[in-house]
Design a protein around this nucleic acid. Structure first.
Lengths: 156, 156
DNA sequence: GTCATACCCCGAAGAGTATTCGGACCCTGT
DNA sequence: ACAGGGTCCGAATACTCTTCGGGGTATGAC
């Protein structure tokens, strides 16, 4: 291995396998990427140390948890300064409906990805959760028909 | 346990722990949720069978993989019918830059979440990947300052 | 009451896995 | 040739997974 950014073929393979199945045993992982188990273990730990592997997470299905409807909520926050923005972020992340939150550049300031029980639940969330807050200047909601997340992010 | 939708306290705890760390050992998981290891194992398998636990994935940091810049690309596809939409979806999911793809209701048809090396890379992706396609009628790109994904989805 | 049924849970133990560590190997520069 | 640094490996011990038989408890029929 040469530079600081690039992964060699074995690291890339480890990354691929762990993104595909985070609960694979170290022994099986080692077999798949053709190194000894001890080597494999050390490589995984190195990837974690380097921050390439940021964590391992179970993927729970929102629909199976009674929240089959997803939406994006675009939010404009006024005034758009630290004292307003930081509490707003904390508020959104504390909502059980929230799946993800993006702070974006453009006409809107935030894009909130939510999963709810049904349209009535979404309506309640919008009215009671968002429009009732003073700093929320504008809302725009888009229903999500389907959402596909790619699990295998590859280097460059 | 009664219904089909609800999880009891132990299942909810298992879900929480596995979303927090998918590589926790079954023994440690059992200790955290206060059941025997064998019981815990069976519960995890039941959650997988039921589709509540859809998978386990390593979380790779796009920035550490040389792609520190993220954006949403809103796309309008014309005509919006099966023969056009399905190849488009396949195309987007095959792009290495794509992190996620949503099919949405509203003025735009798709929202594509991408991670790229830099602005020039994004520009190339837009021009060569998207606007060069016949079915792409409109594009709107928003840079992402920060993106926070919540890992712990709770029931209801 | 008491019996049957259906769950859920548990602990023991063999099979299997993780992890450490010393040493082999292979570059690279002197 | 040889020293230094890095990477990899396999053996061995400690630890974990997984199966399986059995115990506890709630429910409902008689």
């Amino acid at each position: 291995m040469t530079g600081n950014t690039v992964l060699d073929a074995i690291d890339a393979a480890i990354l691929r396998e762990l993104q595909n199945d985070a609960r694979i045993s170290n022994k099986d992982l080692a077999a798949r990427v053709n190194v000894a188990a001890s080597t494999c273990l050390e490589r995984v730990r190195a990837l974690q140390r380097r921050g390439v592997l940021a964590g391992f997470h179970a993927d729970a299905d929102p629909a199976a948890l009674g929240r089959p409807l997803q939406a994006y909520i675009a939010v404009r926050v006024r005034p758009h300064n630290r004292d307003v923005v930081e509490p707003f972020i904390r508020f959104v992340l504390d909502l059980p409906e929230t799946l993800a939150l993006s702070h974006i550049a453009g006409a809107d300031d935030f894009l909130v990805h939510v999963a709810v029980r049904d349209a009535a639940h979404l309506q309640r969330l919008l009215l009671d959760g968002f429009t009732s807050r003073r700093e929320v200047a504008h809302l725009e909601t888009q229903l999500i028909f389907s959402h596909i997340r790619k699990w295998d992010i590859s280097p460059l």
